[in-house]
Design a protein around this nucleic acid. Structure first.
Lengths: 129, 129
DNA sequence: TGGTTTTGACGAAGGTCTTCGTATAACCTG
DNA sequence: CAGGTTATACGAAGACCTTCGTCAAAACCA
């Protein structure tokens, strides 16, 4: 028996999702061009991964055109939210406080971002909780 | 050839680290008791994982006592920071803004946590950046 | 249309991870 | 000290993942 697992994307899958979120629906070749520059991976490697992802449901494929066009099945924001929530549970014991503090203190934020965070905090206070 | 990898702990490793951070230095038996309740894993499975982690350097082992006592090589906060930073790069393109917003909006925070976040934001503004 | 290039499917190698079974070593108890 | 119990080491099975070679199909083009 092996792992019963979350449906977290693997590293390779995430890399491909990132490219597709940025480029929009793309062919294998287009994705490969980006990844080849980034780390010299072969064309069939990318193809295979994308085929597997399609089987898994994380990509969708338009076979009516040639070459086939792939796109991410879920929007970036949803995947981000899911992975963040996963990290929160597995690493921060489900309490977002220290996560947010760590994120804010170790990385640079823009004034605009900070403004929006304050706004959100205000709204949370307003909710009475 | 296979994956050249980050040194992110695997799921199983993280589970053990969590137990050790909570209990402090512990024997395999103690760790196993927690994990067995949580998901029925076998004793030697836990042992093996902890041995591997010791080889990798993520655990340290006191062999001078019997049974041996293991402890996490790195403090929880450091691992949290590392994993958060990793997620930030791989999933949020290195910009913490939306990460923080997502974390705040999807999970409950306490008033105390929000106060500390505001404090930190104030300090960041003060820095002139 | 025939040759060349691009695309897509497939399988398999080699790695990691998790899981245990089994065998040994250490310890304890009478 | 003998017998039983607990702790450790070891190896191997089986599930993924990533990687690519190879071949066939499709598209292109001169």
């Amino acid at each position: 028996m092996a792992r019963r697992e979350t449906k977290r994307p693997t590293d390779g899958e995430l890399e491909i999702l990132q490219v597709l979120w940025e480029l929009g629906p793309s062919t294998v070749r287009q994705v490969h061009e980006v990844l080849a520059l980034r780390r010299g991976v072969g064309y069939t490697t990318v193809l295979k991964l994308m085929q597997i992802m399609t089987d898994k449901g994380s990509l969708e494929r338009d076979e009516s055109v040639r070459p086939q066009v792939f796109r991410a099945a879920a929007p970036q924001s949803r995947t981000q939210k899911q992975l963040l929530s996963d990290l929160l549970e597995r690493v921060f014991n489900g309490s977002p406080g220290s996560l947010v503090l760590q994120a804010l203190s170790s990385k640079k934020t823009t004034p605009e971002e900070r403004r929006r965070i304050r706004e959100l905090l205000d709204r949370l206070e307003g909710d009475g909780r």
